[in-house]
Simulated assay, not measured.
Amino acid sequence: MRVVSLIFGILAALGLLLGFLPLFGWLNWIFVLPPAVLGLIFGAMSRDRGAITLSAVVAVLGALRLMLGGGII
């Protein structure tokens, strides 16, 4: 579970990097938030603090990017 959580966290972080580019903010809905939430769930199941922290930070930054771009009202 720990490895799966880290993989989802890393994939979400890579999607977040693409989502910060102009006109690619919509990627946060597909490639950032769902993997980050799955990473949080699997991290909580495996009790891995690093994976939980990574997924939580990525989810917060993705949601912040959506709020700044008008994706979440």
Results as ranks from 00 to 15, higher is better:
Gly50Cys: 10
Pro34Ser: 01
Phe8Gln: 07
Leu14Tyr: 01
Phe42Met: 04
Gly19Val: 11
Gly9Arg: 01
Met67Ser: 10
Gly43Ala: 13
Phe8Tyr: 11
Gly19Phe: 01
Ile30Cys: 01
Ile30Thr: 14
Leu11Ser: 00
Leu33Glu: 11
Val60Asn: 07
Ile52Cys: 06
Arg49Tyr: 13
Gly71Arg: 14
Gly15Ser: 08
Leu38Asp: 00
Leu38Pro: 00
Ala59Ser: 08
Leu17His: 02
Gly50Phe: 12
Leu14Met: 02
Pro35Leu: 06
Leu6Phe: 12
Gly15Thr: 09
Leu33Thr: 12
Gly19Glu: 02
Gly50Tyr: 09
Met45Glu: 04
Leu27Asp: 00
Asn28Arg: 14
Gly50Glu: 10
Ala59Leu: 15
Ser55Val: 05
Leu66Val: 09
Met1Tyr: 09
Ala63Pro: 03
Leu68His: 08
Met45Val: 13
Ala13Tyr: 08
Arg2Ala: 12
Phe20Lys: 15
Leu40Gln: 00
Leu21Glu: 07
Ile73Ala: 14
Asp48Met: 02
Phe42Thr: 02
Gly43Glu: 03
Ser55Asn: 15
Thr53His: 08
Thr53Glu: 01
Ser5His: 05
Leu14Val: 07
Leu27Ile: 11
Ala12His: 02
Val58Gln: 10
Ala63Phe: 15
Ala51His: 01
Leu21Arg: 12
Leu68Trp: 13
Leu21Met: 06
Arg2Ile: 15
Ile30Leu: 15
Val58Leu: 10
Val58Cys: 10
Ser5Ala: 15
Pro35Asp: 04
Ile7Asp: 03
Met1Asp: 12
Leu23Gln: 05
Leu27Tyr: 05
Val57Gln: 06
Met67Trp: 14
Ile73Leu: 08
Asn28Trp: 05
Trp29Arg: 04
Ile41Pro: 00
Leu38Ile: 03
Ser46Gly: 09
Val57Arg: 11
Val37Cys: 03
Ala12Glu: 04
Pro35Gly: 02
Ser55His: 08
Ala51Ser: 12
Phe8Ala: 04
Val60Thr: 13
Ile7Thr: 12
Trp29Phe: 14
Leu61Asp: 09
Met45Arg: 11
Leu6Cys: 00
Ser55Leu: 10
Pro22Gln: 01
Ser55Lys: 09
Leu33Arg: 09
Ser5Gly: 14
Leu38Trp: 03
Arg47Val: 11
Ala13Gly: 00
Val3Met: 11
Phe20Ile: 11
Ala12Ser: 11
Arg65Thr: 15
Met1Asn: 08
Arg47Asn: 13
Gly25Lys: 12
Leu54Asp: 06
Gly19Ser: 08
Leu27Ala: 09
Leu68Gln: 10
Met1Ala: 12
Phe24Ser: 13
Arg2Tyr: 09
Val4Pro: 03
Val3Gln: 15
Trp29Ser: 04
Leu11Cys: 03
Gly9Lys: 01
Val32Leu: 06
Leu6Lys: 05
Val4Thr: 13
Trp26Gln: 07
Gly25Met: 03
Ala36Leu: 02
Arg2Gln: 12
Pro35Cys: 06
